[in-house]
Write a protein that binds this DNA or RNA. Sequence first.
DNA 1: AACGTCGTACCGCTATGCGGTACAGTAATT
DNA 2: AATTACTGTACCGCATAGCGGTACGACGTT
Lengths: 274, 274
Amino acid sequence: MSDSSTPEAGKDRAFVNGLARGLKVLASFSPDQIRMSLGDLAQATGLPKSTVARLVHTLVKLGYIYVCRETGRYSLHPRVLSLGYPVMASMDKRLVALPMMQELADYSRGTVSLGIRDGLSMILIERSRDRTVRALPLDVGSRIPMESTSMGHAYFAATNPEEQTDILKEFKAHDPARFAEVERTLRAAQKEYDEKGFCTSVGTWEDDVNAVGAAVELSNDVLAAFNCGGPATRITEESLPDLGVRLADLARHFQTADWVGQLPPRPYRGVQTT
Amino acid sequence: MSDSSTPEAGKDRAFVNGLARGLKVLASFSPDQIRMSLGDLAQATGLPKSTVARLVHTLVKLGYIYVCRETGRYSLHPRVLSLGYPVMASMDKRLVALPMMQELADYSRGTVSLGIRDGLSMILIERSRDRTVRALPLDVGSRIPMESTSMGHAYFAATNPEEQTDILKEFKAHDPARFAEVERTLRAAQKEYDEKGFCTSVGTWEDDVNAVGAAVELSNDVLAAFNCGGPATRITEESLPDLGVRLADLARHFQTADWVGQLPPRPYRGVQTT
DNA sequence: AACGTCGTACCGCTATGCGGTACAGTAATT
DNA sequence: AATTACTGTACCGCATAGCGGTACGACGTT
């Protein structure tokens, strides 16, 4: 009893454990751990080895995991990307944001990104960079921490109290020692956001990186947040108030934009596959 | 018995059905069906309603699905994107391809894409377009059919016989009526690929769209394919042989490129979340 | 040769997920 | 206002599916 593997454990007759655990296995891959053995997965998920073996076996049969031919280890199959595609497609609206983002990126000579929350991180789902920058520092899909970034702060400040409570609870569980500090930071962020309409980060994520953040409602119930920032050499601390206002404007414009019909018809012509 | 819900059904003691079904639920969302009720999902997956209710309940608790506040229907949560991120990140190498793709896109005045197989479709994972084109016809993550595109043909031609058999089997199951024709097409594509090193498509996907395709091994065991194409006004039929050779060259260069160290260090600095 | 780790196999037990069927709400019908 | 078709939820007995211990042969490293 007392299944410690999943957060929700109680006596939920309607909770399919096998599914939860399988997804936990999938989610336990990370950019630094893309090849994993059964043992690795067992350790990462906290599940017994034989259980993991069964789950992996299933995932392999379904094609979401494959065995690397040379190392013999397990790896995520690109097919998992197909799970996310409807999400991307449903966020057509983000395409409307792109030109606006590009404009601000050029103006600020930095990077403008759009991200959503996952756990205690923000996942980037769209990004525009100043055309004079060659390197792409943060690719779409990468994560940045919520507690130290302007994007994360804006998100926290803009979400409803229930989710805020959840987030704080998760932080507490994740790192009790830092919890008090994190809570203070986030509350301060909310204060700033309520007053100015955006959040500021001066070297809180990385030294010498400055940014501002502002939230938007992406589609019906999905909250997201923009940020605009870059190295302190390009994005000076003095420029932040200006950029903050512009970013908040961008968010407001985007939110209220009538976008129906602005986009080309869906180019989806694929065979409907299993 | 005779569980018709999953293709693999036999007496596989190590196959976790709940997981397979749960993933089936997730996968049954599509760009045209982003909001679904229990009934819709039951129909789409072929599972009994009560079962779907349990699976959805689980997925909601895990945060992969959320209930739309106003319609009350179920929707994929952007969080599913996080499952795919390690895959994207593991394909660092595709970033090396980008400049080469851009160059060919500019040269051809068309679009160059990179895609991988999922079922009977190819999913685009990277794309460069000629800088004079404003519209983005096919976004990353979208699908194009395998049987009628140069990318799909190249992929089929380049994969191993076992996968070819699988693919054909899947086609047969999917659309028996067209199977003979499809098989003929794919065999012909393979012949062309073996001879020339690329596949040609003249109006087979869309009227007035021409393209060439060539395959590459992306990472260890993952096969992918490039294509280069566009509207017939820009990509003439006469130019295809030239473009084909160039695309095959691109693929070969990419494959053999020593890319270690060409990329910036991984910018992953997020909090490791649950 | 001794160890560690790989993945696979076995197997008894019971908790677990199954899928009928029934029900209380709401929305769009007539 | 009565009807119909939906939503999602709840209940419940049953059988089995999934669990997780433990044991094993195969590599590869030290």
